[in-house]
Simulated assay, not measured.
Amino acid sequence: MRFLLLGLLVAGPLLGATHEVDSATELVAALRSLKAGDVVKIAAGDYPAGHFVTGIEKLTIEASDPANPPHFKGGKEAWHFSRCPGLTLRNLKVSGQSANGINLDDGGEREKPVVKVLLEGIEVSDIGPNGNFDAIKCSGLQDLTIRNCTISGWGGQAIDFVGCRKSLITGCVFTGKMGYSQHTGPQFKGGSEDVVIEKCRFKDAGQRPIQAGGSTGMDYFRPAGAKYEARRITIRENTIEGGMCAVAFTGVDGAEFTGNTVRRPEKWIFRVLQETRAEGFAPCRNVVVSGNSFVFERAKVREEINIGPDTAPETFRFENNRWLAKDKPGASTPKLPVVEKGGVYGEE
């Protein structure tokens, strides 16, 4: 293992070190000696899972060669990071975990979110395969960016946000696999707010390819005492193909679904649900659906929007969407809970 000092000399010691490792033994040694600002560069090859890192600031863990990422196989979790602000994970591959692929959390300090985390070029596959097991699980993070990542085959959620704020998922690919339960793709719940998911591609990504909201136990909300599963969720410029529906709005208090392309949903286009009914929680409400393209088969989609009890669909707004029942163009006009403005029906 080569060990190189990094950083600028600013009225004190150097800021961090680079650890270059090319074996599981060297990786374990590097992780035991971590300091704030360190960089761990990992050579290509297969590595065991089960790595836990806590309390290290401005840590970077990345592939030595982005074109040949190290592969972390099997085990319960590949990586678990607790209270690591400024963390960067770049160009890593994980697969075959029985619980979560990558887990990022705030160590249970629900009023102190972990800030400025970046995941880039991460590939996660074959997680679970069944049950509430996530490819990437994030609890209590703020200013989180997940960019250009690929997720295929998972049990619970492809990405699970619990109480995450001011965060972005962009340019990612989500692909479902036979034999995996895939309850939702990305999910934002437990007090999540100001989240954007954009320019992603979904193919057969489960029962709810995107879920704005969800169902969270009261002890897990961040911040504690939040009266919303999710609010101010923006879903824009994505392509969603297949899946039982495109999006489930589940107890969300304010969302936008704009500029997306939806193709061949299996049963519905949207679901409007309320799964958290605790005192003080608003009904699912205030969603804008604008400028999207929906192409579906009327033989499969008999009901465009599945509306559950205790919701407020009358607060939704539909504008300038294009709707086409490809197998029956004359039956393209959707049945919506409110009148749409500027909709186009029967044309792609």
Rank of each mutant, 00 (worst) to 15 (best):
I305H: 06
D126T: 12
D194K: 11
P283Q: 08
T25L: 15
P329T: 07
G242V: 02
P69V: 02
N286Y: 11
E123I: 11
P85D: 03
R322W: 12
E297Y: 15
P66T: 03
G108E: 06
F3H: 15
G185I: 00
R285C: 11
M1Y: 15
A49Y: 10
I127H: 02
F257E: 01
D310H: 14
C284S: 12
Q97K: 02
G251D: 07
E229C: 00
Y228E: 10
A11Q: 12
K166T: 12
E241N: 13
G280Y: 06
V247D: 05
G107I: 05
G176R: 04
D194H: 07
R232C: 09
L14E: 06
L89Y: 00
S33N: 12
S181W: 03
R201G: 10
T311Q: 00
G191A: 11
A246M: 10
M178Y: 15
K199Q: 13
L144F: 00
K267L: 14
L31F: 09
I197Y: 04
I269M: 11
I235W: 02
G75F: 01
G190R: 04
G254L: 08
I61D: 01
I56E: 09
F318C: 00
C172A: 05
P223Y: 03
P329R: 04
A158R: 06
T276E: 10
K300A: 09
D134K: 12
V21D: 06
A205G: 06
E120D: 08
I122L: 13
R298Q: 10
P48H: 07
E123A: 13
F221K: 04
S293R: 15
S23G: 08
F174I: 10
A135T: 02
C138L: 04
D204T: 04
W79H: 12
P66E: 10
V28H: 13
N260Y: 00
G96V: 07
S98P: 04
R165F: 10
P337G: 10
N286C: 05
E109W: 14
S33F: 09
V94Q: 13
T150S: 13
I151D: 03
L92Q: 01
G280N: 04
L87N: 01
G213Y: 03
A49D: 02
S332F: 00
K137S: 11
L141K: 04
P66F: 08
A135I: 03
Q157A: 14
R2M: 14
G128P: 11
F318W: 10
A212R: 02
Y345P: 02
A30S: 14
Y180E: 02
S215Q: 14
V115C: 13
V162G: 03
N320R: 13
G128Y: 03
R231Q: 09
M1P: 12
I210G: 04
R32N: 14
R208C: 12
K267Q: 13
K93N: 08
A246I: 05
G291V: 07
T175E: 13
Q182Y: 04
G128D: 10
P334V: 06
V10C: 08
M1A: 14
L5R: 15
T60F: 07
A44W: 09
V10K: 13
S23M: 01
N103L: 15
L5K: 14
A99L: 14
P129G: 07
G342F: 06
K166C: 05
K227P: 11
I305L: 12
R110T: 01
G153Y: 12
E314F: 08
I127C: 07
R147G: 09
Y345Q: 00
T150A: 05
G254W: 09
D143P: 04
Y47C: 11
A299I: 11
V272T: 07
M244V: 14
V196R: 00
